[in-house]
Design a protein around this nucleic acid. Structure first.
Length: 1017
RNA sequence: GCUCAAGUGGCGGAAUUGGUAGACGCGCCGGAUUCAAAAUCCGGUUCUUCGGAGUGUGGGUUCGAUUCCCACCUUGAGUACCA
């Protein structure tokens, strides 16, 4: 028999009481359903309201699902989006998936399961988890980069890039047909384009006489995406190229296999064309300074001069240029310090420099070749690890100083990089530390050309304090003056000019991967041709295996239906390739950043089948007003996306050339890993045979672990024995046996086995892993305290905390508030579940403020002065906080408001209703529910944000802090309208003042009315 | 090495233009309620020799500095010979 049968009235009361409690699970499910059914957050492309576009960096849907770190930025942007809706904006707040990528493919390789299937499953999990947190996303605009309807337009943009070149005179991308026009009428001599180095000059006649393959080859050197032989990171063990971020310390991130540099024909993006505009553009966008700085460093602009040095055939004779002479006549260098040209005492070329073999004298040949061979052998890793060793070789050749005409010896050295500038430097040992070290090492003279500089210990590289000396016409000039002067002199000689260099390299765009966008490219006579845009998308073909082919081709080489029939305009079986009408298709796929470089534009008009987005939509939404994401994308996604946006802008396809006005980096939420410490001991036959009799793993306390790390081993043995003295094993220790203890070690344990006092659940731990099943523990106390360390959250560290369990236990509103409450958005911070009870308690208290034991506590009472004061200071603070992205402080503000209103026993609707609107961006479910209970039929989401009224905060008196020599000693309540003199009189008359002064006369009394009183003396 | 960011109670953190350092929350301590526990509520909680001292260290500017300036130390992130 149940309690309710005996005491029906009691049971009724119990149920009633329960309903009055804050039942977050029920409330949250109810409103999530309501929002979805009513499409509450659908953004309209036609609206009289001003637009506001809030964007998150879309996630890669991994198999592990979301952990509590992922939603941090999403919660912040959601608060902002909801706030903007309350402010009357038409808010676009979309979400989607960056769903092409490596993990799904790796999983496919291991299991044979199609990446599309696992991706679909992962997306389902993500969607469920995102929905459960109550985000106000407009899901009708979802994008997935792996959806053919999406990557159709990624392919389309690729074609636009292929059909463009960069005209430096117009400083923008232009159609390739215009370049062809120029070639046809005047050749390439006058073309000022960003293109490959050293393109042969040709006339219009020559161009028109070239066959089409030759023409295509030449055009490729100008196109914004081009096919070229590039050095890539090839991992033979994995059979694929790896991106830079997939390599850690010279080996592959997965598996730790060696990686070598290898030349391969790859698609590249001519991002270098946009280097200057990418740099300049940073000044007009409101991104975090550190992120802009990272991009500036990455672009790496340096202003200087290029200088040509004439090569001397002998030590004293300059080579005369002759038409049939194969000998080089000049070597170009790039320098940022042309002002130091009179300090040049040698020149250094990169070992790979193409002129090395031509200029090396027969006497030096052997030495130079040995050196080149030795450096080629040194791996990238060795070079990185060992920057201090100075190596080099003399070529025997000399160049002539442009002004003094003195001979300058030419060396080679691997401190000069082949890939930067011209691969050659004019070495000024007195002004550059690397040149200085090199000169010292090889006993090359170090002439000093700086007035008053001491170069006995090192180079003098201070530009600001430079005064040039021993430098002919530059004597007495500063860095700036000398630079200007020397450049004009070099120009007169025809041996140099001002030049700007960028570190930014063109980006490799090919991946030997399956799970990425296929290129809309087929090959005729080895030359790439674009498939006509109207036939897009070119869909990813089915393959048997996701690994490279036996001949080393990318996974698409396994596809049997992967050829292009030009007549039928369709993908057909490889067997039909005849290189007349049917041609092979490209086997590489695009990298991860292809789809993410333009997705923000697609959200504006996601279902458009005719264009990547309509001009109407693009002109209405224009750009992202607020973009939130991680700083790890600083030099990847965020640079490439800016590049593509500028390109699309040049082509008139988008209305703005920067896609995101404001960008905020959310910090990472770190995990608090738990560790146990252990060692093994073994009993060994003492007869010298070292036969192991028994062996056991034992868990040692954290303290012992650290003690052993810092002290000796003898003590360790003693400690272990004492620690585990009761164990069975040790009882068997007798004179015939020796105990051997192996080194101590630590291992991660799942954080869910550890309580908030760091105590390990020993039973769970023992059943977790077979290694620990029979492990020895100090069983006397039955408690083991784990070690703690803050690390990145990751599956392998067993420190992942999942939002699902938090939502279930405390609710999404608690999760949202707590993630914000943890600290400033940008900061990295460890996750610690302990504090969540605080915000959860706050929500319960809030609920109680509105709903009492007998129902709703809200009426039409006139608010008191205190009520109004609490409300309006809350409005002011919360509004300021949201606009400053200081979400952590508004959570405190809400707590203070609820604490105060509870103490005031406030029941006034005039106060409690606006308070809900303030709270609704942060804790939308509870706000919606209470809003509904207050009698509203419409969602709270578009209710106007309360207006702050300063008149409610006006005080009639002020509790003045009275300081003595800057130290506050007591406070004194004085009327607000007292002037400085009245305040001084009141303070001086106070007995506490006299007590502090102890008879002294103050030297000075500082009074800031309304703020502070400070008595000096 | 260089660049950037940050150092405040036992912990996360607050302090808006230089003006009462430690808001708010956690934890801890004490109390109420309860047979008991959970939950809830109330009070306390930087240190202190009770004079004061105190925001990484040392200096400076100021009537007054967590806040501004100089030097240094520590930690984290990024970058790697970029001429």
């Amino acid at each position: 028999m149940e309690l309710a049968d005996c005491f029906p009235l009691f049971a009724m009361a119990l149920i009633f009481r329960m309903r009055m409690n804050y039942n977050f699970n029920e409330i949250e499910a109810k409103w999530q359903k309501y929002w979805a059914e009513n499409q509450t957050f659908k953004a309209e492309n036609n609206s009289d309201k001003p637009k506001y576009y809030v964007l998150d960096m879309f996630p890669y849907p991994s198999g592990a699902g979301l952990h509590v770190g992922h939603p941090l930025g999403y919660i912040a942007s959601d608060i902002y989006a909801r706030y903007k809706r309350h402010q009357g904006f038409n808010v676009l707040h979309p979400q989607g998936y960056d769903s092409f990528g490596l993990p799904a493919e790796q999983y496919a390789i291991q299991t044979g399961q199609h990446p599309a299937l696992t991706t679909e499953e992962n997306i389902k999990t993500y969607r469920r988890q995102l929905d459960q947190i109550g985000f106000s996303f407009d899901w009708s605009r979802e994008v997935r980069t792996s959806d053919p309807n999406y990557y159709k337009w990624t392919q389309w943009i690729f074609i636009q890039l292929f059909n463009s070149w960069y005209n430096k005179d117009a400083d923008k991308a232009e159609d390739i047909s215009e370049l062809i026009n120029i070639f046809e009428t005047e050749g390439n001599s006058k073309v000022n384009a960003v293109c490959d180095d050293a393109i042969e000059p040709f006339s219009a006649e020559e161009w028109n006489a070239f066959d089409s393959v030759k023409q295509q080859q030449l055009l490729l050197q100008y196109r914004l995406t081009y096919l070229a032989e590039t050095e890539v990171n090839w991992c033979p063990a994995l059979g694929t190229v790896l991106a830079n971020d997939e390599i850690v310390n010279g080996v592959s991130e997965r598996g730790g296999h060696p990686v070598i540099r290898k030349k391969m024909t790859q698609w590249s993006m001519r991002i270098s064309a946009y280097a200057e505009r990418l740099l300049q553009g940073l000044d007009k966008i409101d991104w975090t300074e550190s992120l802009k700085e990272t991009q500036r460093n990455w672009i790496g602009k340096s202003v200087g001069a290029s200088v040509k040095f004439k090569v001397q055939s002998s030590k004293f004779k300059v080579e005369e240029p002759t038409t049939n002479n194969q000998q080089p006549t000049t070597i170009s260098v790039f320098t940022t310090r042309p002002d130091t040209i009179f300090g040049v005492s040698f020149m250094t070329l990169a070992p790979e420099h193409e002129l090395v073999s031509q200029i090396t004298t027969p006497e030096q040949k052997a030495e130079v070749e040995n050196y080149i061979e030795a450096t080629a052998k040194r791996s990238e890793r060795d070079r990185m690890a060992d920057v201090k060793t100075i190596t080099g070789a003399f070529t025997g050749a000399y160049v002539e100083h442009p002004f003094t005409k003195e001979p300058i010896p030419v060396w080679i050295g691997d401190y000069v990089l082949a890939g930067y500038g011209t691969g050659a430097v004019m070495s000024v040992p007195c002004g550059d530390q690397r040149d200085y070290d090199f000169a010292k090492h090889f006993n090359i003279p170090i002439p000093n050309i700086f007035e008053g500089a001491d170069i006995s210990e090192g180079a003098f590289a201070d530009k600001d304090n430079t005064i040039i000396a021993n430098s002919d016409f530059l004597n007495g000039l500063s860095y700036k003056e000398a630079t200007k002067k020397v450049i004009s002199e070099l120009e007169k000689l025809g041996q140099g000019q001002g030049k700007t260099n960028y570190r930014l390299r063109d980006a490799v765009f090919s991946r030997q991967r399956y799970w990425g966008e296929p290129f809309p490219v087929y090959y005729v006579d080895g030359m790439p041709h674009m498939i006509d845009a109207k036939h897009l998308p070119i869909r990813l073909p089915e393959v048997e295996k996701y690994l490279p082919t036996e001949t080393g081709e990318p996974p698409l080489g396994n596809a049997t239906v992967w050829a292009w029939n030009r007549l039928k305009a369709e993908v057909v079986s490889n067997e039909l390739i005849d290189n007349i009408n049917v041609f092979p298709l490209e086997l590489n796929t695009m990298p991860g950043w292809a789809g993410s470089s333009w997705y923000f534009n697609r959200y504006m008009d996601v279902h458009n089948t005719e264009e990547f987005a309509s001009q109407d939509a693009l002109n209405y939404w224009k750009d992202v007003d607020l973009y939130i994401g991680g700083s790890e994308h600083a030099t990847g996604h965020l640079l490439y996306a800016r590049f593509w946006q500028k390109f699309l802008f040049d082509k008139g396809l988008v209305p703005v050339d920067e896609f995101a006005k404001k960008l905020i980096n959310q910090g990472m939420i770190l995990g608090t890993s738990a560790f146990v410490y252990y060692t093994f001991y073994s009993l060994i036959e003492k007869d010298g045979s070292n036969v192991i009799i028994d062996r056991k793993r034992i868990i040692i306390p954290k303290e012992l672990y650290y003690q052993v790390l810092s002290t000796g081993k003898d003590e360790f043995l003693e400690n272990i024995v004492r620690y585990d003295i009761d164990s069975e094993l040790l009882k068997r220790l007798d004179n015939d046996e020796l105990i051997l203890i192996t080194p101590i070690a630590s291992t991660h344990v799942p954080v869910e086995y550890v309580n908030s006092s760091d105590e390990l659940n020993i039973d769970s731990f023992k059943s977790w892993h077979s290694d620990f099943k029979n492990v020895g523990f100090d069983s006397k106390e039955g408690i083991y305290k784990v070690g703690r360390e803050v690390e990145k959250m990751s599956k392998s560290k067993y420190n992942v905390v999942n939002p699902d369990q938090i939502c279930e236990e405390y609710g999404a509103d608690s999760l949202r508030l707590y993630e914000m409450f943890l600290g400033p958005l940008e900061q990295y911070k460890p996750w610690n579940t302990a504090g969540i009870t605080g915000v959860h308690g706050f929500l319960k208290k809030l609920w109680k403020l509105y709903v009492g034991d007998d129902g709703l506590n809200v009426n039409d009472d006139e608010p008191t002065r205190d009520n109004l004061k609490t409300l309006h200071k809350t409005i002011k603070k919360v509004q300021e906080d949201i606009e400053n992205f200081s979400f952590n402080t508004s959570v405190s503000t809400f707590m203070i408001a609820v604490n105060e209103l509870t103490a005031q026993k406030c029941t006034s609707k005039e106060i409690l209703e606006p308070l809900l609107i303030l709270l609704s961006p942060y804790a939308p479910h509870i706000a919606e529910e209470l809003w509904y209970q207050l009698g509203h039929n419409e969602s709270i989401s578009t209710a106007p944000f309360p207006k702050f009224d300063a008149s409610h905060l006006v005080e009639s008196s002020k509790n003045y802090p009275i300081s003595f020599n800057g130290k506050m000693r007591f406070t004194l309540e004085l009327p607000m309208d007292f002037n400085a003199q009245q305040i001084e009189e009141a303070v001086m008359a106070n007995e506490k003042t006299q007590e502090q002064l102890q008879g002294r006369t103050p030297k000075k009394v500082i009074i800031v009315p309304g703020k502070i009183v400070n008595i000096v003396g």
